[in-house]
Simulated scan of single mutants.
Amino acid sequence: MAKKNLSEMSFLDHLEELRWLLIRSTIAILACATVAFFFSDFIFDKILFGPKNVDFITYRFFCDLSQEFGLDKSLCVTEIPMRIQSREMGGQFSAHMWTSITAGFILGFPFIIWEFWKFISPALYEKERKYAVLFIVTASILFFTGVLFGYFMIAPLSVNFLANYNVSKEIFNDIDLDSYISLLRSSTVACGLLFELPILIYFLTKIGLVTPSSLRNYRKYTLVIVLILSAIITPPDIISQVIVAIPIMILYEISILISVIVHKKQEKIK
């Protein structure tokens, strides 16, 4: 059956389209998750457990950086006193399954974005629909950049801080497997979605919910919110918070620029 035009679609038709979007996206995630399931050795030993090793690339980078600026080895990580344990019978299997699904979501993100584009494209102008490839590539790059930032910056900073934090010498950190993986999952996926801010602002400007002037007026409040978010998703030290806050504020400024461009085009159409 031929696909209906936007003007011909009822509310139930939109719900049906949304239902199939979710079904196809779920199938894509599960397909990618199945592939990831068979690469568990690499995903767990090399990727997930990488930030708990003192020779992780991020720790070496900060160590070299501190020596470059004459700070001796003040930023060098020499020990991460923690062990990973599984305290439930199905703990490792559950971790394997959910990690595979998370990997499936990350790997399948471009397809999910493509499905999202197909869902909203009927509401766009004909000339805007031609930018499908640009939209998908840009959104995917932003997401993967956020994931990499979360993995190489947020996750190791959090792991190092929390592993070395102690209230008594009588306590040793035997970290539950699920707790450790949850930390890495939230750090990477949250940053990936957070880096989609320019895309979100683009569509909010299109539908008139935000304007360039409102984004500029709320810049100082946004900075406070970003610092609060940085304090939540990073260890409570100023260096970690600044490292997280800087790229987010850069994305916010880029979002303002995007909003200006969209707003000017809409004004010309009027």
Results as ranks from 00 to 15, higher is better:
239 I>P: 03
7 S>F: 11
90 G>F: 11
235 P>D: 01
44 F>M: 00
93 F>D: 07
138 T>Y: 14
190 A>N: 12
201 I>C: 07
141 I>E: 08
39 F>R: 00
147 V>W: 03
97 M>G: 03
158 S>I: 04
10 S>I: 01
141 I>Y: 13
157 L>C: 07
236 P>A: 10
93 F>A: 11
65 L>N: 08
8 E>H: 06
157 L>V: 08
133 V>I: 15
248 I>L: 15
183 L>G: 03
231 A>R: 13
72 D>F: 03
186 S>Y: 09
5 N>H: 13
110 P>Q: 05
63 C>K: 10
223 L>A: 12
76 C>F: 05
147 V>G: 07
221 Y>H: 12
68 E>L: 14
246 I>C: 12
145 T>Q: 04
108 G>D: 02
222 T>N: 05
226 V>Q: 07
161 F>R: 05
197 L>N: 08
248 I>K: 05
175 I>K: 15
74 S>R: 03
62 F>I: 03
237 D>H: 04
222 T>A: 15
126 E>F: 13
35 V>I: 11
58 T>C: 10
193 L>H: 12
172 F>W: 06
252 Y>W: 10
190 A>E: 09
99 T>I: 02
60 R>L: 03
149 F>I: 05
57 I>R: 13
124 L>C: 02
263 H>G: 02
193 L>E: 14
73 K>D: 12
195 F>A: 08
64 D>Y: 11
41 D>C: 00
251 L>G: 07
129 R>G: 14
123 A>H: 07
115 E>T: 06
131 Y>S: 15
197 L>Q: 09
32 C>F: 08
251 L>A: 10
157 L>T: 08
28 A>W: 00
34 T>M: 05
9 M>Q: 08
221 Y>T: 09
140 S>P: 09
199 I>K: 15
243 I>F: 12
78 T>L: 13
218 Y>Q: 08
50 G>Q: 03
269 I>F: 14
188 T>W: 04
21 L>W: 01
42 F>A: 00
28 A>F: 07
176 D>M: 10
45 D>E: 04
53 N>S: 12
123 A>M: 04
198 P>T: 14
1 M>Q: 06
138 T>Q: 10
226 V>C: 09
155 A>V: 11
106 I>W: 01
249 M>A: 05
95 A>P: 01
33 A>I: 02
50 G>E: 02
251 L>K: 01
124 L>S: 01
124 L>V: 08
241 Q>N: 06
145 T>A: 15
75 L>S: 00
156 P>N: 14
37 F>T: 03
158 S>G: 11
161 F>D: 09
81 P>H: 12
42 F>C: 00
7 S>Y: 06
31 A>H: 02
43 I>A: 00
68 E>C: 07
6 L>T: 10
78 T>C: 06
215 L>D: 07
254 I>W: 01
48 L>W: 00
38 F>K: 01
144 F>H: 08
115 E>G: 12
199 I>G: 14
150 G>K: 14
5 N>S: 07
267 E>P: 04
147 V>D: 04
209 L>Y: 15
111 F>G: 02
85 Q>E: 11
150 G>P: 06
130 K>F: 06
40 S>F: 01
214 S>K: 11
205 T>A: 14
118 K>D: 04
125 Y>S: 06
107 L>K: 02
201 I>S: 06
120 I>P: 02
197 L>P: 03
98 W>P: 00
